[in-house]
């Protein structure tokens, strides 16, 4: 069996092994490649940064553990950014698997910034019904969520004395693992005229460019790279953030070496496989001609 046939019939377990190796190695021996930022993420950052201190930001964290590595770092960084700017955070999820992850994030970052639930932020929890929930929020937040995640009545909370519905919020960010971005655009952002950004898994990022192009989204952050970019922007603007606990800063940044390595491997293997494919094809044609 020559090289070309070998490559074309390569056992996929060998590829699995290479991928595993290329992920583990850079994690153990980091190279720390410099991370560039893209305009899509910069515009999310500057939108949040440009809001006057103490604005109300509604964060929908619509993901579950399966996309934790991609989106949880973004949630941490966004929360840190909001609290850094003293924004009031209204955080909720449309995914049943989400609450426990958000709970981790908001409690940890909240404690770090000394923010208290009910006054500086409110974790509304989960409600099923996607669009029905978002639609409800446009009429009344406390009506849709009579109690928060901890089963405390929301109507009494100081944070909901000024804000009654989505329209009163200054910004919406949807951190989404699925198709909830459309729901937020269709039922909240567009009809209520509240600007909005989306941080989504890299899978869906390309799909949201029509909305970004049309100005319906201010910015898009795609996957772990987007989160890493946000971290970089945050660290540039707020130097004390860098020292603000390892869990928050640089969680996504760490993964970028491995990301580059595996991408390079996949690209090279595709090119190699294609070259072999062409050689094999040519050979076949020649054989046919000779026969």
């Amino acid at each position: 069996m020559d090289f070309v046939t070998l490559i074309l019939n390569l056992d996929r377990k060998i590829i699995f092994g290479c991928v595993a190796l290329l992920v583990v190695w850079p994690l153990l021996v980091p190279i720390q490649m410099p991370i560039g930022t893209t305009p899509e993420v910069r515009s999310i950052f500057s939108a949040i940064d440009a809001l006057p201190n103490g604005s109300d930001v509604m964060i929908a964290a619509d993901y579950d553990p399966s996309s934790k590595p991609e989106l949880q770092p973004f949630t941490y960084s966004l929360l840190a950014h909001c609290f850094e700017k003293d924004h009031k955070v209204h955080i909720l999820t449309l995914w049943p698997g989400g609450p426990a992850l958000i709970q981790q994030a908001i409690e940890e970052v909240g404690a770090q910034y000394g923010k208290s639930s009910g006054t500086d932020y409110c974790f509304l929890g989960y409600k099923p019904g996607n669009a029905a929930v978002v639609g409800g929020l446009t009429n009344s937040i406390t009506g849709t969520y009579p109690t928060d995640f901890y089963n405390r009545p929301t109507a009494n909370m100081p944070i909901y004395q000024r804000v009654q519905r989505v329209k009163d919020c200054d910004y919406i960010v949807d951190i989404a693992a699925g198709a909830t971005v459309e729901v937020w655009i269709a039922f909240a952002s567009a009809p209520e005229n509240v600007p909005m950004s989306a941080a989504c898994t890299a899978v869906s990022a390309a799909g949201y460019y029509p909305y970004y192009q049309a100005g319906q989204l201010d910015g898009i952050s795609g996957g772990m790279k987007g989160s890493a970019e946000y971290d970089v922007l945050l660290m540039d603007k707020y130097p004390n953030f860098k020292n603000g606990g390892a869990r928050i800063a640089g969680n996504a940044v760490k993964g970028m070496d491995a990301q580059s390595a595996v991408h390079l491997f996949i690209v090279l293997s595709i090119i190699l496989a294609n070259i072999c494919y062409f050689i094999a094809n040519k050979r076949q044609r020649e054989e046919r001609r000779n026969a």
Partner: peptide, 25 residues
């Protein structure tokens, strides 16, 4: 969390092998 996340991350291997196997011009 670990089981769901793992189930999802197995995709990385599959996507690599799919790219290698099926991605032909």
């Amino acid at each position: 969390i670990p089981m769901q996340a793992t189930m999802f991350s197995v995709l990385a291997f599959f996507i690599a092998s799919a790219a290698f196997r099926a991605f032909r011009a």
